[in-house]
Amino acid sequence: MAILRAEHLSKDYQMGEVVVKALQDTSFEIREGEFVVILGPSGSGKSTLLNIIGGMDLPTSGKVFLRDEEITAYGDRELTEYRRNKVGFVFQFYNIMANLTAEENVELATEISKDPLPVGEILEAVGLSDRRNHFPAQMSGGEQQRVSIARAVAKNPEILLCDEPTGALDFNTGIAILGLLHKVNRDMGKTVIVITHNSDIAFMADRVIRMRSGRIIEDHINEKPIAVEDIKW
């Protein structure tokens, strides 16, 4: 069953006197429990797509459905509720709060969500039990990204949206983070959507959506996803 469905999405930006078409008539479906990689070079519209399906931006035209709910018809309040309970975000630059510890950063999200997971367990799952009281400045990039993942997962969302989650990390740390996302997908049953320009990551995905110039140029099921450890770039 499709957990997420996009129908004819378009997004135009006005840049001075020029209209930039970031998304053009984009449609796709994502099934529940899939690990999806949306692949594309910079400027292909993948971040715009993520922003729209994450309820952070609205399309110029087209619709997005979470199960049968049309989120593009939501008002401000419903969109906030949607972000609060249905989706979790992981960003390229971690974007965790500098003046909160690892644990507090996770609690920042769980405090407002309806059905959060136990913070301690999540921190343990991401391998940060012994770093829970550290501030971001005392942690490595990989550790900070783990906090970011823990924060997204602990809300117990239906979908995890990750924007270049390994973009700021070295290869080994990147692989470890991808392993963690894979674990969240397999063990916790969360649908994970990863946006990246790194085509090697696509090999681990259940579904790969390729984008270029605001359009989907390929949308296929990866019959044989490889293990995270086997990815090389």
């Binding site: 401000d76 309040r77 972000r83 974007n95 407002i112």
Partner: peptide, 16 residues
């Protein structure tokens, strides 16, 4: 700016 963006992305409302 970024912090506010994140708070909103996590699900904090404008009012909050």
């Amino acid at each position: 700016r970024i912090k506010i963006g994140i708070l909103k992305a996590i699900g904090y409302s404008n009012r909050q």
